[in-house]
Write a protein that binds this DNA or RNA. Structure first.
Length: 540
RNA sequence: GGCGACGUAGCCAAGUGGUAAGGCAGGGGUCUGCAAAACCCCCAUUCGUCGGUUCGAUUCCGACCGUCGCCUCCA
């Protein structure tokens, strides 16, 4: 089965054939680092992260490059406002960007060049264009002569007149054509600069991507990606520069992600609806944000609302619970023996799993339709849940089938969608909430002179590395630094869950419910299943 | 004005020339001490409007209405 992609350049679907069989070179335009990134940019970055992961999953050897624009007017401006050095300012926000992407589960690029580190390559490209009469010098810098490139406008489907008509009045008088754009800008006082044949200055915006692609991938890259708003002028200009210089197609496939709206409107700082990645990841689980981004095809607009995120929290939970149920049922009765599958239902589950994998691939192969692929996953989850439900006493075959199903789901969720990046909640906050539950529990037990339970709580906590110091009214505590907070959390939940089970066995429903409520308040949701009581964090 | 995208149930959303995936929400039921989870059943004769092509269109074409984006070095 071939992968087909929508190519912005041809405005139609094309079979995806990389330059070198089995290898994919992919370049995605990165951020300008003058502030925290917004969730609109993150949509693009998550989209192409998942596309990159999928191509890898499909067996391609993918090299993924993404630039960081750390030289830019906006950075200079912002640094000046804050009385900071422009490059240092940019470096700070480049780090924040990396942190944001990590929090969103975006894999780091294989190559992450910065504009400030690519100046020599940009300069030689400019020189090449000058030598070819495709660029000229003015008093303010060097400009690319759009007129020198016959195919200008082919990506964004604009004629020369269209662009001229749209150009703002007040353009640089020295420019030969309003469409011409800066390759090199002479530095004004207080601006960062590099030496060049055209005087001290800095590169224009578009030239960095051309220079970087050529540096790392040669004249032609397989996939050049970015947000839809980059089609014009950024990518159009990249094509003009690059193809003029190399006479080769700059990219085989141009992929563009549609914009993200917030409450039905374009998101913008001036519109007052700007949401940073930092805010979003602090507020919502990564899986939910990623699923939200993937819930609509990447070339369609998507509206960010609290309701939409809430839906995707539920979606993520559904998939995670299915996986947990499969794992629990598969593991509940000891390790699987090595025997031939003879159980009809088990054979069917394996077949369903295989079919789901194929249908998922068929969906996603068609221009990365993850929204459709998710539909396949949910149907699969439903079938798997049903199997678990119907096999209260799973045979050896059934357990193996469930393990197969779980492996599939885990693979897609973890490696392709990137929605199983581990727990992201704040473990120390969770731990203090849970310790409070335990301490209260012990306090109540002592009040009623239930010394057995009180001591048991203290001993269980102690065994988990949590030392209690009894005070007059409350108890202080500290965690052994050698013990992981998440592990300590689990220990407390297990303890409380065990006490609840005992209470239920004594049919002390009030006690059992109180324990369940206490855990719920601490952010732990209990799930009573046939295979015992499971639990999960309700804060993601 | 030029270029372009989108309009599918209460909400989100996939999709196809042959009569509508999935998720969320909602209703009923099973299970459960109760709940949650899971499971079962129900929930668009209809895909912005009007025409056209066709045996047949939500899917192709045209017009219109509506929403939105780019044309401003915002990914």
């Amino acid at each position: 089965m071939a992968i087909r992609v929508h190519n912005t350049l041809t405005r139609r679907m094309e079979e995806f054939v990389p330059l070198t069989p089995g290898k994919v070179n992919m370049y995605c335009c990165g951020p300008t680092v003058y502030d925290y990134q917004g969730i609109h940019n993150a949509r693009t970055f998550v989209t192409f992260d998942v596309i990159r992961r999928y191509l890898t999953h499909r067996g391609f050897d993918v090299t993924f490059a993404q630039n960081v624009t750390d030289i830019d007017d906006k950075i200079i401006e912002r640094a000046k406002e804050n009385d900071a050095d422009a490059l240092e300012w940019a470096a700070t926000y480049a780090d924040e960007y990396a942190a944001d992407m990590a929090a969103l589960g975006v894999l780091p690029p294989d190559i992450a060049p910065r504009a400030s580190e690519t100046v020599p390559e940009m300069q030689s490209l400019i020189t090449q264009l000058m030598d070819g009469d495709a660029a000229y010098e003015t008093s303010s810098g060097v400009y690319y002569s759009v007129d020198s490139f016959d195919e200008y406008g082919k990506l964004s489907n604009r004629s020369a007149d269209d662009v001229r008509a749209g150009a703002r009045i007040g353009v640089d008088e020295e420019k030969r054509d309003p469409r011409d754009f800066a390759l090199w800008k002479r530095a004004k006082i207080g601006e960062p600069w590099w030496e060049s044949p055209w005087g001290r200055g800095r590169p224009g915006w578009h030239i960095e991507c051309s220079a970087m692609v050529m540096k790392y991938f040669g004249a032609t890259v397989d996939i050049h990606a970015g947000g839809a708003d980059l089609v014009f002028p950024h990518h159009e200009n990249e094509i003009a520069q690059s193809e003029k210089a190399t006479s080769a197609p700059f990219a085989r496939y141009w992929l563009h992600g549609a914009l993200l709206r917030v409450g039905g409107e374009k998101m913008g700082k001036s519109l007052g609806n700007f949401i940073t990645v930092r805010d979003a990841t602090a507020q919502y689980p990564t899986e939910a944000i990623r699923l939200f981004y993937l819930s609509t095809h990447y070339r369609k607009p998507l509206d960010y609302t609290p309701e939409a995120i809430a839906e995707n929290i539920a979606s993520a939970r559904r998939l995670n619970r299915c996986l947990a149920a499969l794992r629990a049922a598969a593991d509940a009765h000891g390790p699987a023996a090595d025997e031939v599958l003879g159980d009809g239902a088990a054979i069917e589950l394996v077949a369903t799993t295989r079919a789901a994998a194929e249908r998922f691939a068929a969906m996603v192969d068609e221009d990365f339709n993850f929204a459709g692929g998710l539909g396949v996953l949910f149907e699969f989850a439903h079938a798997a849940n049903r199997f678990v439900d119907e096999n209260a006493e799973p045979t050896e075959d059934a357990r193996r089938a469930m393990a197969t199903a779980a492996a599939f789901l885990e693979d897609v969720m973890g490696n392709v969608l990137g929605i199983r990046g581990g727990e992201r909640g704040d473990d120390s906050a969770r731990l203090s909430r849970l310790v409070r539950v335990a301490v209260n529990l012990r306090h109540d037990a002592r009040e009623t002179k239930d010394w057995g339970t009180a001591d048991r709580v203290r001993d269980a906590l102690g065994a988990s590395g949590i030392a209690l110091q009894d005070g007059r009214d409350a108890s202080g505590w500290e965690l052994d630094p050698a013990v992981d907070e998440a592990v300590a959390c689990s220990a407390i939940v297990e303890l409380v869950a065990a006490l609840r089970i005992e209470a239920r066995e004594r049919t002390e429903w009030d006690t059992a419910d109180a324990l369940r409520d206490a855990l719920a308040e601490a952010g732990v949701q209990l799930l009573d299943t046939r295979d015992g009581t499971q639990w999960e964090w309700s804060d993601g």
